[in-house]
């Protein structure tokens, strides 16, 4: 890495700083400073898009004035228009990104909490092994969107959640958000259970035998010896799951959760500016996904067992794949 002080690397750093600087400062403005009356206020722009729009207007009018060459300056106008729109929608997207991130992170962790016992039951048997199999196969065999529909339209969760007093007040989000969390948790738990099952099976059988030979019970052996190794093996798969959840959290927009996609599609359908809005949206998602893969890569190197060649090498192999 160090022998590559090239432009691409520099651009990546600049882009990362700009992206997270924007998101973090936006959140800070909305929740910390706005209540105190500092800054532009909740959801208000830092900059006014007006000068950019004016500039765009100027270029559109000056196409003929550049002389005999008759250079078309329309593309410049388009770019400036896009920039103006970006400035205008940025606060809304930042708020949507917050919902996307919370939805993803909470569902991933809750899903993991269900997935670990599910995978252990599946591998080490017990009377519930068939139940674990049925659960994972059913969830993995049907589309996430259909699952969200079952929860949102099919069951009376909405009625039930509306009765809970705190839902939808202050910082506590609307019931659709909770339904989305339930849906993503269930969906994610089935996939994570599969990843963890794979990792459990890749831990050498001798490890459990050796644990039992020093007098640990089977469940202690699984807990202290097999699982700690498993969870390390599972990190690459876990990265995939994180990326998957970030991207598929966009489906929560269908059940009116105000995450990134929902916000963008509302803007697009009112302004009819599909191209710039969705381009911007895609960029925000890519920013989130690349951050997630990078962070998980760091985590993997951090917890890698020294001397086990994998860590660095596998990471390399995967970065190439991105």
């Amino acid at each position: 890495m160090t022998d590559r002080p090239d432009l691409g690397w520099l651009l990546t750093i600049v882009a990362a700083v700009a992206f997270w600087g924007w998101l973090l400062s936006r959140w800070a403005t909305d929740w910390l400073l706005a209540p105190l009356g500092i800054g532009p206020g909740r959801g208000e722009n830092y900059l006014s898009p007006a000068p950019l729009e004016d500039a765009a207007g100027t270029f559109e009018g000056t196409a003929a004035a550049v002389g005999p060459l008759r250079v078309r300056v329309d593309p410049i106008a388009t770019v400036l228009d896009g920039a103006a729109l970006a400035v205008e929608v940025a606060p809304v997207l930042a708020d949507g990104a917050w919902h996307t991130i919370v939805l993803t992170a909470v569902s991933l962790l809750l899903g993991l909490a269900i997935a670990v016992p599910l995978a252990v039951v599946r591998v080490y048997g017990g009377p519930f092994a068939w139940f674990a199999l049925l659960y994972t196969e059913l969830i993995r065999g049907t589309p996430l969107l259909a699952q969200l529909f079952v929860l949102y339209y099919g069951l009376d969760l909405a009625v039930w959640l509306n009765d809970v007093d705190v839902v939808g007040r202050g910082f506590v989000p609307e019931y659709a958000f909770w339904i989305a969390i339930i849906g993503f948790t269930i969906n994610g738990s089935a996939y994570q259970a599969e990843y963890i099952r794979g990792a459990l099976e890749s831990v050498d059988e001798g490890q459990l035998t050796a644990a039992r030979a020093v007098g640990l019970s089977k469940s202690e052996g699984i807990r202290y010896v097999v699982l700690p190794q498993t969870l390390r093996y599972a990190i690459p798969a876990w990265t995939n799951e994180l990326v998957y959840l970030i991207k598929y959290s966009s489906l929560a927009g269908f059940i009116t959760v105000p995450e990134l996609y929902y916000r963008a599609s509302r803007i697009a359908s009112t302004t009819l500016e599909y191209t710039p809005v969705f381009t911007l949206l895609a960029l925000v998602y890519i920013g989130l996904v690349l951050t997630a893969t990078d962070a998980m890569g760091r985590l993997e190197r951090r917890v890698a067992v020294p001397g086990l060649g994998g860590g660095e090498g596998r990471q390399q192999a995967r970065t190439e794949g991105e």
Binding site: D204, A210, A211, A213, V214, G215, L216, Y224, V305, L308
Partner: peptide, 26 residues
Amino acid sequence: GMVFQDINLFTHLTARKNVTLGLEKV
């Protein structure tokens, strides 16, 4: 005590922790 042909040290633990695991948990 048992010593194995394929050794089966706990790969995620240091040499010392390999020894202490049974002492602490058992």
